[in-house]
Design a protein around this nucleic acid. Structure first.
Lengths: 130, 130, 130, 130
DNA sequence: GTGGTCTAGACCACC
DNA sequence: GTGGTCTAGACCACA
């Protein structure tokens, strides 16, 4: 897992985003125990307090819960994860559409380009498995 | 114009991408004269040699041409621009799809989410102008 | 029994208050024999002299009496207990009203809020037992 | 304003409570500018980071808002303050009722004692102003 | 000057 | 060992 941290935004927000993504994409499955704050901090080459701040926010949002003495865990509530997943998807789509509009494409064009690309990828898939 | 340069990739490639984008999105229209290398470099807070390298590559691709006596211009060949636009769009779409797949979405879901969002934005547009 | 002692006020006054409360609430019933000073002191993690001072004051107030040969007992005079109970209640109410006034509530509001809360709790009780 | 901080609970939660109370009771009126984080911290004899944490939480709850360069202000939304006031009142009442129940009083008794005390205080008021 | 962020290092409670 | 809290001191962006 590549902890990709830029200095142009607060580190803890980037930590939040990346952990959200890891949870939504199933890298950390529901109910899984996370590494300790200190371990995560070291892994990300970040101060434990900074990591703590990120985890606290994720906990507020219900994505994590903590068992005071045994560590922090991913929520077991699939709905919350689903909801966050939706939020992340929405912002990805918005970013994408904004960029495409900037390039001067119309809605119809965008849709058809995406569809075409997806179809061609499916063809790849079929070829590789036929 | 936000010359947005990170230090994680060669500067000149980032310059290329951003100038390509400015041309494709019409900020620099077909046939327009570009500012001098020196001015562009200063504007982007970059070494003139770096800017020169970027412009040379763009020229190689046919997106710019040089008139030795009067400066550098955007190509007047709409096809070339269109082609570059297509290439940029393709990489945007690929990035986007990769991220959505990472989040665990299926092709159908992605398409329908994009369509829904585009429709809702059109509704906004109509509301604001009705 | 949580001997809850802060360091911001004399320990022995806090001991008095808590023993008064235990007697008024019936934890130590009328006529009951108390543990020895030594035991009480140990239980509260307090110097026996401090506990002795508290008990002496309670005896002065008539809430306890000493039988030199067999130990210390809670008074059997229900009236005295009732009187102390009234005094404790009065200070609780005064504290409470002071806080509510500080929050900016009027007398009528306070009364109605208390009544509403008591009613809702009774409803709970009925629900849980129906 | 007496910053009353015990060491038996996190300091920042106590700061939150006391600032909430100051806002609800009107000591800091709606729209008022608060002292700077550093000044508040010094006043409360607390590390600026601790005060910052408390203020950040109050901001999350909508009780404060911040104008990045000019300071922090009390919300101008009377509803939010009202709501918090209600929450604080509720917990005060619950604490009070719990203590009175512990003393062995019935609902009716509690109500009548509160009413009597309020009436007698009103009498005081009338006497002092007649 | 303002708020915001980050680090380093310490201490605590819990089990 | 775990998470949680606190402090001291630094740096940044903004205006």
């Amino acid at each position: 897992m590549p902890w990709d941290l830029k200095s142009d935004r607060p580190i803890y927000t980037q930590l939040i985003e990346q952990i959200e993504l890891m949870i939504c994409s199933g890298i950390y499955a529901l109910g899984t125990k996370l590494p300790s704050v200190r371990d995560l901090a070291q892994e990300a080459a970040v101060n434990p307090n900074t990591m703590q701040k990120a985890l606290a926010k994720l906990e507020e949002d219900g994505l994590l819960y903590t068992n005071r003495t045994s560590g922090r865990f991913v929520t077991e509530d699939a709905d919350i994860v689903k909801q966050v997943k939706g939020r992340l998807a929405l912002s990805q789509i918005n970013d994408f559409l904004k960029k495409m509009k900037n390039l001067g494409f119309q809605n119809k064009e965008i849709i058809s380009m995406v569809e075409n690309l997806l179809e061609s990828k499916e063809d790849d898939y079929h070829e590789h498995n036929s």
